[in-house]
Write a protein that binds this DNA or RNA. Structure first.
Lengths: 371, 371
DNA sequence: TTGTAGGCGTTATCAA
DNA sequence: TTGATAACGCCTACAA
């Protein structure tokens, strides 16, 4: 068995109350000389307080639960790094779990969190299932939603300004005179982030007086392949788009791959705006114009807000906190060349002749990562 | 305050011992009729056992600590998905922490784990710092190393067979008649995975009687940009390699970007073998020949082994468990064309004329991920 | 088959 | 400034 406070007390020749006071109380509540004796005993014995015993008494565990719909997506590594940082700073531990997109797994992890009496939960909801939503809504623990919400969840939300993200992408393309814009996204599923990016795309076009052709909006199943198929379908249309917006980082590469598969060049034949600015986006061919989202900040802010809520310091109520995306213009977007006329049909065929591409610019410095 | 076992006992009209027995004991130890009364009371009150109290009594927390050197790398999303799965299955919770490659953060998280009395620790060590190593070695908790180890750490290891990985890459290139092979890796730092991949590269060349030119081996700082610089340096040599092996998934894209920046074509001018087979490797241009490593299985097996060790069921002692990588041959490697003669100097300049590239093949089906 | 009671390691109250 | 002691919620002999 590990050493207990009693061992320390004996070793230091004081009572356990004194040890506890020295360890927890504000400095000065214990005589300096006594304190240093306790200090020495703690060091000698390698004493580490048992937080189960402590939390039994205090009702606080110093733990927050992080329940993600699916951690198996690079985006979340970055978000988690932010969550970690905030937890670390505040002395909290994080229990991270991934529901693998399944409602039953989500529920089982929730149970684990409740058993562990986490002080709060950071939730990225997996499913719009009404029963699950009702169960969540009934909980008493402080909960902060991260990245997205669902109708009926009465908790504060920290998320990206998704509508603004697609708005930036569309405005950029409109400014380049594109009028037939394609959009490849996830299937909406009632999840707010997906709905909002779609809404931002459509409304920005409408605001500009451009008709949003429903045929140019495609939804791909989650994963790394259906986005290719959907993009191909988009390109195969009689009047294909001159530019495409990707709704998330998983789709970015799928769009690019599909476009190359069709033998189209980016941006000469078609422009592409990606989403999320993954660290490798500047390394793609061509370097991707992207809606950059502050993924790490998302994690930090959500965790900070949850910790504030736990301490009762959250003055925001259930208000949303939205993080602002930013458009990074690289080389995957360019002015439209000609509307709706495929390269092959042009009289002056010069556009179809490959020219040596300019040297790829070097990427900006990225954050250090290990491995 | 949450409802306690006492509330349940009162509600069901039994003693707390009976409730506890019904909840924990093997079925049948409580009369069926009594059991269903307890069951009903639990449901009505929404009772969830307090695991702090339980673990105070039993000495087990049902928690494992996962301490990663740096979670901010896509590779770990996949590993964690595996860890999650195994924990979920065994009823364990996982506390995941990331040291951001800093020894002090690593140490602070270790303290958190010890305070929480985790039942075991999954460790991906961040630094070869001897003090830290000594501190680790002194711990009494069951520990399983994941992905890499350090000299002096007396714990079981679950990792990839790294030497085999680079061996597969080199053998493939040798079979394509390449003789000047470049290698771009991380700075070794004493971390086993890095050392092993380097050793596998060098020894495979030597076994084949090919001299491993030290000038063709470059080490890049962690991150998303130095790999580009190192690859450029490699290509700028008087007698550049005809093929390059990448040591990890972060470098894959950096190699490709640098090669394109120099105007070289893959695989016509230079072959590239990547590492890790990230989900997007088949989407790259060209689809990357890669050493595929079972990242999710790494997580699963490490967690399972730790859980077995906690239960005292680990018959393996400190033996290593190595997972076998596999070479996936796609389109980034091809036969060597001519040794050491740059395209520009050829009399027959046909090699320098861009030809339309063949359509990119569609990617295989990937695992579903959310977002 | 069920109930009573002691104790797990802390914190916090109350005296000294 | 320090010490004795009663909880905190649960498990588990031991009794009934």
């Amino acid at each position: 068995m590990a050493t207990t406070i009693e061992d320390v007390a004996r070793e230091a020749g004081v009572s356990i109350a004194t040890v506890s006071r020295y360890l927890n109380g504000p400095g000065g509540i214990v005589a300096a000389e006594t304190g240093s004796r306790v200090q020495a005993a703690v060091a000698r014995l390698g004493y580490v307080p048992n937080s189960a015993a402590r939390s039994l008494k205090t009702g606080k565990t110093g733990l927050i639960g992080v329940l993600l719909a699916n951690i198996a997506h690079p985006y979340w590594s970055t978000v988690l790094a932010g969550v970690e940082e905030a937890c670390q700073k505040a002395g909290y531990g994080a229990m991270v779990s991934s529901a693998a997109d399944r409602a039953d797994v989500e529920h089982s992890y929730l149970q684990t969190f409740l058993k562990q009496r986490v002080d709060g939960i950071l939730l990225n909801p997996a499913h719009a299932d009404p029963t699950t939503v009702a169960a969540w809504a009934r909980l008493r623990v402080p909960i902060v939603l991260i990245d997205r919400t669902l109708p009926g969840l009465p908790f504060p939300l920290v998320a990206m300004d998704n509508a603004l993200g697609t708005r930036l992408a569309v405005e950029h393309l409109l400014a380049l005179s594109h009028r037939r814009l394609g959009f490849v996204s996830w299937r909406p599923n009632g999840l707010s982030n997906r709905e909002e990016r779609l809404a931002g795309f459509v409304s920005t076009l409408e605001d500009a007086g451009v008709r949003a052709d429903p045929g140019l909006i495609r939804f791909a199943a989650d994963g790394w392949s259906d986005g290719v198929a959907q993009t191909l379908a988009l390109l195969a249309q009689p009047d294909p788009p001159t530019a495409i917006v990707s709704a998330n980082s998983t789709l970015n590469l799928q769009l690019l791959a599909a476009i190359k598969h069709r033998g189209r060049r980016v941006p000469a034949d078609i422009s592409v705006v990606g989403y999320d600015d993954s660290p490798w986006d500047p390394l793609l061919d061509p370097p991707l114009t992207t809606v950059a989202t502050p993924a790490k900040a998302l994690g930090t802010m959500a965790a900070e807000r949850l910790i504030a809520a736990i301490a009762g310091h959250d003055g925001y109520g259930n208000r949303e906190l939205r993080l602002t995306p930013e458009l990074l213009i690289r080389q995957s977007t360019g002015p439209v060349r000609e509307l709706g006329v495929p390269d092959e049909l042009r009289v002056n065929g010069s556009g179809n002749r490959p020219r040596p591409s300019p040297p790829t610019p070097l990427p900006r410095k990225g954050e250090g990562v290990g491995g």
